[in-house]
Each structure stands twice: as C-alpha cells, then as structure tokens.
C-alpha cells in the first residue's frame, strides 16, 4: 500500500507552506495586507499539517523518500519590491497547488479504503487550500497591472 506516501507528501508540503507563507509575510511586511493574510494562511497550513499528521502515524509503514520537488526550487530566498512580490505570490500559488493535486489523489485512496476520517480531513484540506489559492489569485491580479506596466 502506498497511501502513506501521499499522506506524507501532503503533510510535508503543508509544513513547507507554514514556513513559506511566513517567509513571504516577512519579506513583504510593508505590504500590510500581504503580511497579515500570509500570517493567517500560514496558521491555516499549520492546522492542516497537524490534522494530517495523525494519519501519517496511522499509515506510517511507508514514507515518501523523494525530496520536496517544489520547495527545493521555489522561494529559495525572497526578494524585495513589486516584481518580487508578484513572483513570491506566484511561487506560493504553485506550492499550494501541489497540495491541491496531492489531496485529490489522496482522497481517492481514502475513499477506496473507506477511511471516513481521512476523507473528512482531505475535504478540509481541499476547502482551505481553495481559499488560499483564491486569495493568492485575487492579490496577484490586483498587483499585476501596476507591477508589469508601471513599477520601475
């Protein structure tokens, strides 16, 4: 059974997100709404990570040995300024999308296993992930024209 791999993947990516959101929050602290919302979204990821951790223990026989594919390359270090903000939000979007895909796959497995609790947790991850993506999209959209056209 390989379900542990995907539990692990979701868990680790959420933990990465806890850090990634904080990183971006601090790098762009002057954009007050970015700071506050990223801190909030970081706390959501922490909650999700804790929730999934329970299942990581339950299905512990197999862990994912592959290195983190995304956080390895994304958000290595954050940058300052308008363009950097756009790129950092963009990177966050990709990492959150990774959770979204993992979770879709995991939920299939959980449903097949008839593990109602895991299904419920997957749904919670899906719900919160969607909200995170939705904010990132909104914020990128509002920053994009000014950044791409005007900002030096």
């Amino acid at each position: 059974m390989h379900i542990g791999k995907y539990i692990d993947l979701v868990h680790r990516t959420e933990e990465d997100l806890v850090k990634a959101f904080k990183l971006v929050a601090n790098a762009h602290g002057d954009e007050v709404d970015v700071y506050q919302t990223c801190m909030l979204l970081s706390s959501w990821s922490q909650k999700l990570a804790d929730e999934i951790e329970v299942f990581a223990k339950k299905y512990k026989e197999e862990r994912d040995e592959e290195p983190d594919r995304l956080t390895q390359t994304l958000l290595k270090k954050t940058r300052k300024g308008g363009m950097a903000l756009l790129r950092d939000l963009h990177d966050l979007y990709l990492i959150v999308s990774e959770v979204e895909v993992c979770c879709t796959i995991l939920k299939q497995g959980a449903t097949g296993l008839r593990d109602k609790e895991l299904v419920a947790s997957c749904e919670e991850v899906e719900r919160q992930t969607k909200r995170q993506l939705s904010w990132l999209t909104t914020r990128m959209k509002s920053a994009a024209p000014q950044t791409l056209i005007v900002a030096e």
Partner: peptide, 19 residues
C-alpha cells in the same frame, strides 16, 4: 475592469512605492 478598482490604502501605497 481587469482587476478590482484600487482602494484608497493601496493608492497611497502605490504613491509610497513610487508607481
């Protein structure tokens, strides 16, 4: 109409960052 109209606090922020 491509993105939400810019709210006041953001207008002042754009002025602050120089755009």
């Amino acid at each position: 109409h491509w993105s939400p109209p810019t709210h006041a606090m953001q207008i002042w922020r754009f002025a602050e960052t120089g755009s």
